[in-house]
């Protein structure tokens, strides 16, 4: 996007946090010491394979997991310093949704959504009803208030989970593999709902996933977790277009299988230099490539390519073979136009 990102204050701060579990008298490290700020209003993704520690990291935000060392700040409050009652009060301000929804099977949809209100001490039945109606309207489930969770589809259950998580007007929403149990269509709908909530309620969202596509569609920034370490951290566009760590590359390849296959293709017989061009934002819509090629007289051949979006940001990535006397001048002109260029090893 053209506008410069506003400097935003962190709403969640991890300061030198580490976590290990005691198993049979031995400490098994789950998360190595890290510090991380999550900004107010951003959608922050944490991606990693199972066992990488992402579930533990997410649960540090509401102290369902206690750090073995370091501090976790939410707003100005150091959660690790709170007593039980104060921590419970803080947790009411942090919503959470789950892969398997974790709804009360014995209660109706409306009762499930009213549950956190009751926990917070609301007794006024009329107030509860109004708030529940409001929440069900937001997630599009007004017609299902009297149903039981077992009568709903997976996507509907997750919507109940979201309504429930929003009930006490939290400032943070934690998503624990919230779409992993859903089909692709439903995943899209739920991600769209999360993006909408983020936009309209200015809610900070922290989500963990093992799918790069989820990160690409909703996140602003992403941390890649591998064996208890944050191995890569940055804006989704940077990480997605220029993955550095092998684990990150693998995640990107999983999200773009055709491109990954194209990269593997034998280019030995292709003449010229093989380069990958990445352009994002407004650059995607300007005919920079054709202008530069025309001006420099370089021949180009498209080997692979894709135009898509990262969240709202349009981007393109093309793998080209460039041939001619003025390739360097062409690359210089492309870089000057804001296009990122990487040489592809053959």
């Amino acid at each position: 996007m053209a506008s410069r990102p506003q400097p935003r204050s962190p709403v969640i701060r991890f300061i030198d946090v580490h976590k290990s579990y005691r198993v049979d008298g031995r400490d098994i490290p789950a998360l190595q010491s890290f510090s991380l700020d999550i900004a107010d209003g951003e959608v922050f993704g944490i991606i990693g394979h199972s066992g990488a520690g992402k579930s533990t990291l997410l649960r540090l935000v509401n102290l369902l997991e206690r750090p073995s060392g370091g501090r976790v700040l939410v707003g100005d409050t150091d959660l690790t310093a709170l007593d039980d009652a104060a921590l419970r009060a803080q947790r009411q301000r942090i919503g959470m949704i789950f892969q398997h929804f974790n709804l009360l099977g014995s209660q109706t949809v409306a009762e499930n959504v009213a549950f956190p209100l009751r926990l917070a001490g609301e007794r006024d039945a009329a107030k509860i009803r109004t708030r529940v109606d409001e929440l069900l309207a937001r997630v599009g489930l007004q017609a299902h208030a009297g149903k039981y969770p077992s009568q709903l589809s997976g996507g509907q259950k997750q919507r109940v989970g979201i309504a429930r998580a929003l009930a006490n007007r939290p400032s943070i929403l934690l998503c624990d593999e919230a779409t992993s149990a859903l089909d692709p269509q439903t995943t899209g709908d739920v991600l769209e709902l999360l993006a909408e909530i983020n936009r309209e309620l200015k809610l900070t969202i922290v989500l963990i996933t093992h799918e790069m596509d989820v990160v690409r569609r909703v996140c602003d920034r992403v941390a890649v977790l591998d064996a208890g370490r944050i191995v890569e951290l940055g804006t989704v566009a940077d990480v997605f277009l220029h993955p550095r760590h092998p684990t990150t590359r693998r995640f990107v390849e999983e999200a773009l299988p055709e491109e990954a296959a194209a990269e593997q293709a034998p280019y030995a017989h292709v003449p010229g230099r093989i380069l990958r061009l990445s352009f994002r934002g407004a650059a995607t819509w300007t005919p920079t490539l054709s202008r530069v090629m025309r001006e420099t007289g370089v021949d180009f051949n498209i080997l692979a390519g894709r135009i898509d979006r990262i969240k709202q940001l349009p981007y393109g990535q093309l793998t080209l073979a460039l041939d001619g006397a003025n390739v360097d001048a062409a690359l210089h002109a492309l870089r000057a136009a804001g296009i990122e260029i990487e040489e592809v090893a053959r």
């Binding site: 369902l64 419970r88 959470m96 789950f98 009360l104 926990l119």
Partner: peptide, 25 residues
């Protein structure tokens, strides 16, 4: 266990979990 974890995440006390989650479920 997930339902209990969800209640904890919502700030439920042990007593609230017993009364509002465990016994009804």
């Amino acid at each position: 266990p997930g339902v209990i974890e969800a209640a904890q995440a919502m700030g439920a006390s042990t007593w609230q979990i017993v009364r509002r989650v465990l016994l009804p479920e």
